[in-house]
Simulated assay, not measured.
Amino acid sequence: MNAEDREEKETGDFSRVKDKAGGGQGTEARGKEPGEPRQTAEDTGESRRFNQETGEPHQAGKEAEGSRRTGESADGGESAGGGEGEVLTPEEQLSRAEGLAKEYYAHLQRLQAEFDNFRKRTAKEKEETVKYAAERIVTSLLPVLDNFERAVAASRTNRDFDSFAQGVGMIFRQMQAVLVKEGLTEIQAVGETFDPKLHEAVMQVDSEDHPGNTVVEELQKGYYLKDKVLRPTMVKVSR
């Protein structure tokens, strides 16, 4: 027995002896009350989550951990998106639909009224256009009419036929100018081959100066109005 053992025996301190006998576990034993069970890895659940030999988590523990995290993510997603869509009761949905229907119906009525007004206005404008289509040409011919009245009045007091004829010729050329300005042109007929689209044959004659089916004489002038035949020329045609 060495000096240290003798000192422990004399003082009655056996804690160091217990520490030596227990391989260093005496300190842990002093932290426990007598009779208190010792907590092991099985009691804390560590043995169920980790392999005691390798220290790695069990497969079941991995799956449980993954499921727990997935559930937390799903809960978080529901919490984040829960306020985005407004949930309406059937009564609220019906009320909203009725309001939209009334709004659309009122808009449709306004459009229909506007279309009816447009149709009436267009019909009236078309009627006025047809009714007064000759307004411009008649306005252009009014000066010609005035000159004819003056010529007739002058013929009552002045018996000079030559001056009267000269005045009428001037009025005629004035009227021609107005009509030409509106697109009126003569159809050429004499010497042309007969064309039923342009000529109206009222007589056939024998002619040594013209080949057959040729216009030899113009009985009444024909006219174009721009590119439309306004009136065909009345003619005599050679056999």
Rank of each mutant, 00 (worst) to 15 (best):
E56F: 03
L141G: 00
L142N: 14
A154H: 08
L94D: 11
E63R: 09
R69I: 13
A134Y: 13
E127S: 13
G169R: 12
L108K: 06
R159G: 15
E92D: 05
K62H: 03
A74T: 11
Y132L: 05
A113D: 06
A97T: 05
R69V: 08
R110E: 10
G81W: 02
S67A: 11
P143N: 02
I137N: 04
Q59H: 10
V144M: 07
A123Y: 08
F161D: 15
F148M: 12
K102R: 11
G77P: 00
G85H: 09
K102G: 07
R68W: 08
N117K: 14
S155H: 00
L108I: 03
L145F: 04
Y132A: 09
R68I: 05
R69H: 10
G66N: 13
L145E: 13
S73M: 11
A97S: 06
S95D: 10
V130F: 15
P143C: 03
F164M: 08
Y105I: 05
A64T: 04
Q59C: 04
V138N: 11
T129G: 15
T129N: 15
R159Y: 15
P143K: 02
A97L: 05
K62W: 01
E98F: 02
Q109E: 10
F118W: 07
E91P: 04
G169V: 04
V87H: 05
S79T: 14
G82E: 08
G71D: 11
L142A: 15
E135K: 13
A123P: 05
G61I: 01
A134S: 13
A154M: 07
G85M: 10
T122W: 12
T129R: 15
Q93A: 13
S163F: 06
R119N: 08
R69C: 06
K131C: 07
S155L: 02
F148G: 08
E103F: 02
G82Q: 07
S79H: 13
G167K: 13
A64G: 00
E56C: 03
R96F: 01
R159I: 14
E63I: 06
S79P: 03
L145W: 08
R119P: 01
N158T: 05
Q93I: 09
E91W: 03
K126C: 00
G99M: 07
A74R: 12
A60V: 10
F118Y: 12
K131L: 09
A113E: 08
F118M: 12
L94H: 07
E98T: 04
F148C: 10
V152C: 02
G167V: 09
S73T: 14
V168I: 15
